[in-house]
Simulated scan of single mutants.
Amino acid sequence: MFAAEGELPSVPYFAITEDSNHKPNENLIGFWAHDREEVDRIAELVVRYGGTIDSGPWQFPISPTYYAVYFQDPCGNKYEMVHRLN
């Protein structure tokens, strides 16, 4: 489950339900980061808690301001954490 800061259930949140056979799909869930340091911090947490880094964290050639990490949770669900200047 991912939630905004504050008390549930009054803040925005969503949860991912595991497939009973632990088979992820091809969806990618993306999150905006406040800054590059937040992207790096999430990458460290992914590794610490058993996830897999697919790519990054680094500056991607999508644009000169696109800094991201792509990763999977231990069940194989795919995510992106990105910081992008406007």
Rank of each mutant, 00 (worst) to 15 (best):
A3R: 13
D35N: 15
E44A: 15
P24Y: 01
M1V: 08
C75G: 05
Y67D: 03
Q59T: 04
V11Y: 11
P61T: 06
M81H: 01
R41C: 08
W32Q: 15
R84W: 04
F2W: 10
E7Y: 04
L45Q: 13
F31K: 01
N77T: 07
S55M: 11
E37F: 06
F14Q: 08
V82H: 00
Y49H: 15
F60D: 03
M1A: 07
Y13A: 14
P24L: 00
E26S: 15
I53N: 03
E7T: 13
K78N: 08
K23S: 02
F14S: 10
D35P: 00
S55Y: 11
P24N: 03
A3S: 13
F14M: 12
E44R: 14
N77C: 09
A33P: 01
Y13T: 09
H34F: 12
Q59I: 04
N77L: 05
F60A: 12
P24C: 01
H83S: 03
Y70T: 06
Y13K: 07
R48P: 00
V69W: 00
P74I: 09
G76V: 00
E37S: 14
R41Y: 13
P12E: 08
F2R: 03
L45D: 06
S20R: 06
G6Q: 08
C75K: 06
D54F: 03
R84A: 11
N86R: 08
P74W: 14
A3L: 07
W58F: 11
E80L: 10
Y66L: 11
Q72L: 08
P24W: 00
Y67E: 02
P57W: 02
N21M: 05
V46R: 01
I29R: 09
E26F: 06
W58P: 00
N86E: 13
A33C: 15
Y67P: 01
F2P: 02
D19H: 13
T65I: 04
D54Y: 05
A43L: 09
T17H: 07
E7D: 10
Y13R: 10
E44M: 10
